[in-house]
Simulated assay, not measured.
Amino acid sequence: MIEQSFLVGGEVPVRRLGFGTAQLTGPGYWGPRGDARDAVAVLRRAVERGVTLIDTADNYGPSLAEELVAEALHPYPEGLLIATKGGVVRTSDSAWHVDGRPERLRAMCEASLRRLRLDTIGLYQLHRLDPAVPMAEQLGALDALRAEGKIRHIGLDTVTAEQVAAATELTEIASVQNRYHLLDRAGESLLRLCEARGIAFLPWFPLGNGTLTTDPVCASVAAAHGATPARIALAWLLHHSPVLCPTPGTGTLAHLDDNLDAAAVRLTAEEMSRLDALG
């Protein structure tokens, strides 16, 4: 039996299959992808389908994705966890830089609170560790915001297992967000650390940015289930580890429904063995 839910930070229950908002913005996460009404419809449909974890970031757009989340879903239904990120400044569709100075992290968090129309951000993730700023100062800034009630839980994005272990010596870490999917298992040691410590692992590019749809093994398993390869790739994540909480994104209702149907797929041991071998 696959566990369909996870307790973020050991206390906030979410359905493991969530929704990510990056694909609601244009190429390079810059500007709108299309009509804002379509994005609003997708977000509302996600929640109607039972999604309780929405993953966004202040630099998607920039700012646009957070604004769309608020437009579509505020006032937020009870039990919906909004996760956003700060620490990256995007200046064009192909240029961005990391800024982890405490004063900048505070300003970014407070701007996200305003755009999302929240008093407290349920999960605030440091989008990148800034190598020019001591980790203790970056996490200290987030700890201060948590003490003020502006964020509830702290997460990290694009980190190593060693960095997560060091971070947990400084503060409580509720989530990590790293690239991980059926064909890319570089984060396996980090995943095992998350399992040991009860940390949610939100894999980004859970569908390999589209590459998984052409894999013949994935396609074969999909055919046996009358499903798409994308649905099978997401189902594999849900079967592979109980801490994996994929948040695939899309700008279309049809693709959204297909992604969310992955929660109902039950892979056999033989199918899991074939899929595991791809990594």
Rank of each mutant, 00 (worst) to 15 (best):
T228W: 01
Y76A: 09
L238E: 11
Q125C: 04
A219H: 05
G210F: 14
V217I: 14
G208V: 05
F205I: 11
L183G: 08
R179P: 08
R274V: 04
M135C: 07
T247G: 06
A39G: 08
L116G: 03
A107D: 12
T160R: 03
L156N: 05
L170R: 14
N59Y: 14
W236A: 02
E66V: 03
T120W: 06
C245L: 07
L267A: 04
R152F: 02
L260N: 03
A235C: 07
T120R: 07
D38W: 09
C218N: 14
R192P: 08
L123H: 03
R117D: 00
M108K: 07
D119A: 13
G149I: 13
T56W: 04
R274A: 15
A263I: 10
Q177T: 04
D130V: 01
D35A: 13
V98P: 09
T25E: 04
T252L: 00
T160I: 02
E48D: 08
V176L: 07
Q163V: 09
L256C: 10
P229Y: 06
H239G: 12
C194V: 08
I2Q: 12
D157T: 15
Q138G: 11
Q4M: 14
R117A: 14
R266M: 10
L170Y: 11
N259I: 06
H240C: 02
L17W: 00
Y60K: 09
R152C: 07
A263Y: 00
R114E: 15
H153T: 09
Q177S: 10
G140N: 07
V89N: 01
V159W: 06
A269F: 12
G20I: 10
A41K: 01
V69N: 03
G100K: 13
T252K: 10
D261N: 01
R90A: 13
S92R: 10
A263Q: 13
L81H: 07
G155Q: 03
L118T: 14
S241Y: 13
T52M: 01
E137K: 04
A262C: 09
R115E: 04
I54H: 07
L80Q: 05
P242K: 03
V8C: 04
R231G: 08
P32S: 09
A264L: 02
R128Y: 00
R49Q: 12
L123R: 07
C109N: 05
M1R: 13
I82V: 15
P77I: 13
L193K: 10
L193W: 09
D143G: 03
L142D: 02
S63V: 15
T21P: 08
R104E: 08
I151L: 15
L43Q: 05
I154E: 03
L68V: 06
T171I: 09
A227M: 06
S273V: 14
A147C: 00
V265K: 10
L191A: 08
A186R: 14
K85V: 02
A233Y: 00
Q138D: 00
T25C: 12
S5M: 04
E188R: 13
T84K: 05
V42F: 08
L139S: 11
L170A: 05
Q23M: 14
L238P: 12
A167Q: 10
A144E: 14
E195W: 09
D261T: 07
M272V: 09
A166S: 12
